[in-house]
Amino acid sequence: MSIVIEQAVEARLVAAAPRMASIPARLAYDARDPFAVRMSFPAPATLEGVEVCWTFARELLTSGVTEAVGAGDVRVRPYGYDRTVLEFHAPEGTAIVHIRTGELERFLSDSAALVPAGEEYLHVDMDGDLAELLRDAF
């Protein structure tokens, strides 16, 4: 069984990036990093002209399809009956995208089949992570 899930989604750009009204974004979930989701945007859709990847909590995305959540760099909220808004705040500006809620729910369902919500801690290698953290400390 694969430990990584990737799903292409169509993001409708609302603000903060030139040239494209709709962009092909990619969601990724890796069971080795069970609390996180990654969303990447292709180079033509970014101000810098390079691919940009945001990493944020899976729980933020899960909650954001039904209620407004987030107070930091990433904020998520429902929009209408079939869209979810993701806001990405950076020093360079803010990007706001709309994604079909059904696409997000399918991705979240697939990630939950891989690592059920509440069981993420079972997939964390605490000893390995601690050893990596302390590797250069001595």
Rank of each mutant, 00 (worst) to 15 (best):
A11D: 09
V52P: 04
G70K: 06
T62M: 11
G128C: 06
D125M: 10
E51F: 00
V124E: 13
A28D: 02
E51M: 10
I23M: 04
A71C: 08
M126T: 14
V74S: 04
D33F: 01
E51N: 08
D73L: 08
S109G: 08
M1W: 13
E105N: 06
P78H: 04
G93A: 05
D127H: 08
L47S: 12
A95G: 14
Y121V: 11
P116K: 00
L86G: 05
L27M: 06
D30G: 01
H98K: 04
L114P: 01
D125K: 09
L134C: 09
A15Y: 02
R32S: 08
E105W: 00
A31W: 06
C53V: 15
F56R: 05
D110A: 11
E132V: 01
T55L: 13
A31F: 09
A31Y: 07
R100N: 03
L134K: 03
G64L: 03
T55Q: 14
P18H: 10
E59W: 11
D30K: 02
L114R: 02
V76L: 11
L133A: 10
T62P: 00
V9Y: 03
L104R: 04
F35C: 09
V85R: 03
A45H: 01
R75G: 03
R19I: 06
E105D: 07
M126W: 02
A71F: 09
I5C: 05
L108C: 02
E119M: 13
I3P: 09
F138G: 15
E10H: 08
R106C: 00
I5V: 11
G93M: 06
A131P: 00
E6L: 04
R75M: 10
H123D: 03
A31V: 07
V14K: 13
V65R: 07
L114G: 02
T84W: 11
G102D: 09
